[in-house]
């Protein structure tokens, strides 16, 4: 019997393996990764539920797909589910999950009084797992369902998704228009292949940038190693999506902008001067 299962593949899954490994080390339980042949959430939830029903703990990355699938699996199994966890604690054979509430203003330690306990983890909050992984292969049979996919599109944006990037360069209304984005693109390019672009909500609402780049309470929640906020005032709804970043750098001409309250480093100045200067300095240091 394998007590802990990590559902799904990809780099998100490999970070979730760190959680499984960590819990396994403290409890003596075994863990494995469940490779799924298919991931259409509506069709395969029941099949996934059957695969995991005997485990004690089932984990998955808190991606859009991961959260949707686990919500369905949880209902099929009639068990509670803790979404978007950022940490865990083991006390004997009891596992406590840590998840942000109220847009990150409070953290909750939650215990799931059911078996299996289901949780999704924000991938970037966990280190990548480097060790060996036992893989369980399952061929899933879809359940009959009434959902038709009319079309599916992949990409249409940057090569690297913002939630996977180590460094995120993000622009706000202070950028004044999409025609100025090349200065952020140059900075991101200088920062290498692990850098991606993001934006505040008005920027995507105005159609300056694709919606996939919108971060915040109503957009994506990200936790890169470094978040660079350029011309962003730092509204609570924005900060809710980036507060998990390890280091926040803010560039704003208003010394009283709220973004400076959450920033590790703040540069007060005109972004049209500061960003090109930073790009040049980074290039010189490479």
């Amino acid at each position: 019997m394998t007590e802990i299962l990590v559902v799904g593949e990809g780099s998100a899954g490999s970070r979730i393996c760190s959680v499984a490994h960590g819990i396994a080390t403290q409890t003596g339980w075994r863990w494995a990764r469940l490779r799924l042949s298919k991931s259409d959430t509506h069709a395969f939830a029941e099949a996934v539920a059957k695969c995991v029903q005997d485990a004690k703990i089932v984990l998955m990355g808190a991606t859009a797909m991961g959260k949707d699938l686990m919500a369905r699996v949880a209902e099929h199994l009639d068990v509670p589910l803790a979404q978007d966890c950022i940490g865990y604690r083991v006390a004997g054979s009891k596992v406590v999950f840590i998840r942000p509430l109220y847009g990150g203003k409070v953290l909750a330690e939650v215990h799931l009084a059911a078996c299996p306990a289901l949780a999704t983890f924000r991938p970037r909050t966990q280190p990548a797992y480097q060790g060996a992984v036992a893989i369980l292969e399952h061929v899933l049979t879809p359940s009959p369902h009434e959902m038709q996919v009319v079309w599916r599109k992949v990409g249409g944006g940057a090569a690297l998704d913002v939630a996977r990037a180590d460094i995120v360069v993000s622009g706000g209304r202070g950028m004044q228009g999409p025609e100025h984005w090349h200065i952020l693109e140059s900075l991101a390019a200088a920062l290498g292949p692990k850098a991606a672009l993001a934006c505040s909500r008005p920027v995507s609402d105005n159609g300056w940038r694709p919606r996939a780049e919108h971060v915040g309470q109503t957009g994506r929640v990200i936790a890169p190693a470094v978040y660079v906020a350029v011309g962003i005032s730092g509204a609570v709804q924005h900060v809710a999506g980036i507060a998990g970043s390890k280091c926040i750098i803010a560039i704003n001409k208003d010394p009283h902008a709220s973004i400076f309250k959450v920033a590790d480093y703040g540069i007060v100045g005109d972004l049209f001067e500061v960003v090109p200067a930073l790009t040049a300095a980074v290039k010189a240091l490479r």
Binding site: A128, I249, F260, Y265, I267, V268, A277, V282, R286
Partner: peptide
């Protein structure tokens, strides 16, 4: 911890550039 917030030109931009350069190609 309280952040370091300073005006452009004070040298803060060099600190930030070094920090950013330090993250290039490093995995967290």
């Amino acid at each position: 911890a309280e952040g370091q917030v300073q005006s452009f030109g004070s040298g803060i931009e060099d600190t930030v550039a070094r920090l950013l350069a330090g993250h290039i190609d490093t995995q967290v």
